[in-house]
C-alpha cells in the first residue's frame, strides 16, 4: 500500500458517495453528497502527499470550488426551478446502482491490468478514479433532468481530479486551476440555460431538447 490509511478511507468515502448519487432520487441530497465529495477530494492531496504548499493550495482551491461554490450555485438553481426529485430516469435506480457496482468491481479487478507505474499498482487511487469517471458517465447517460446531468458532469470531473492527484507533483497548478475555471464557467452557463429552458418549456427534462435536433 503506497497511501496512508487516511487516504484509503477518503477514497472509500468517494466511492460510497458515487453509489449514493447513483441510487438516490432526491436532488438536494445528491448535490449535498457531491459537495461532501468535493470536500473529501480537497483533503486528498494533503493525505497523499503530506503537508506542503502545493498540496495545500490545491486542497484549498478544490474546497472553495467543489465543496462550496459549485454546490451552492446548484442549490440556488434548484430553489429557482423548484424540483426535488428525479422522476422516471431512463434506467431504474436499482439497475443503475447494480451497474455502478459492476463498474466498481471491474475497475478494481482490472486496474492492475493497465500499464501503470509500478508505484501505483495495488493502490486504491487508480480504481477509484476509474470508478468515479465511469459513474459520472453512467449518471449522465441514465438521468433525464438537466440538473442531475450537471451532477454527473461534476462527478466525472472529480474522477479526473483523483487521477490528477496521482500526478500532482508533475501537474502545474495552473493546469488544474484552468480546469476548475472551465468547470465553473460551464456550470454558470448550465444554470442560465436551465433557467431559460424552464421559462420556455416549463420543464427541465432534457427529453424535450431532443426535439431541437433539426
Amino acid at each position: 500500500m503506497s497511501e496512508s490509511l487516511l487516504a484509503n478511507l477518503l477514497l472509500l468515502s468517494v466511492i460510497l458517495i458515487n453509489f449514493f448519487c447513483l441510487g438516490s432520487a432526491r436532488l438536494v441530497a445528491c448535490i449535498r453528497a457531491i459537495a461532501v465529495q468535493g470536500v473529501v477530494l480537497a483533503l486528498l492531496p494533503v493525505a497523499v502527499h503530506g503537508l506542503c504548499a502545493h498540496s495545500l493550495v490545491l486542497g484549498l482551491g478544490t474546497l472553495c470550488f467543489k465543496g462550496v461554490l459549485i454546490p451552492g450555485l446548484l442549490l440556488r438553481a434548484i430553489r429557482e426551478v423548484r424540483i426535488r426529485r428525479e422522476m422516471e430516469p431512463f434506467v431504474g435506480f436499482a439497475t443503475t446502482l447494480f451497474l455502478g457496482t459492476l463498474i466498481a468491481a471491474c475497475a478494481f479487478l482490472c486496474a492492475d491490468w493497465l500499464p501503470l507505474a509500478a508505484a501505483h499498482h495495488e493502490g486504491l487511487l487508480v480504481p477509484v478514479a476509474l470508478t468515479t469517471i465511469f459513474s459520472g458517465f453512467l449518471l449522465l447517460m441514465t438521468r433525464r433532468k438537466a440538473l442531475t446531468q450537471v451532477l454527473g458532469y461534476l462527478m466525472l470531473e472529480n474522477g479526473i481530479f483523483i487521477f490528477a492527484v496521482l500526478l500532482s507533483e508533475a501537474l502545474p497548478l495552473m493546469v488544474e486551476a484552468g480546469m476548475l475555471l472551465d468547470l465553473l464557467v460551464g456550470i454558470f452557463i448550465m444554470g442560465i440555460v436551465i433557467n431559460q429552458i424552464r421559462r420556455e418549456f416549463s420543464t427541465i427534462s432534457t427529453e424535450q431538447l431532443t426535439a431541437l435536433k433539426e
Partner: peptide, 21 residues
C-alpha cells in the same frame, strides 16, 4: 426499502471485491 437493501447488498459485494484483490 427494497432499493436500499439491494444497495447494501451491492455495497457488501463491493467490500468482498475489495478484500479479494
Amino acid at each position: 426499502v427494497p432499493q436500499v437493501l439491494v444497495g447494501t447488498t451491492l455495497l457488501s459485494a463491493f467490500a468482498l471485491v475489495l478484500v479479494l484483490r
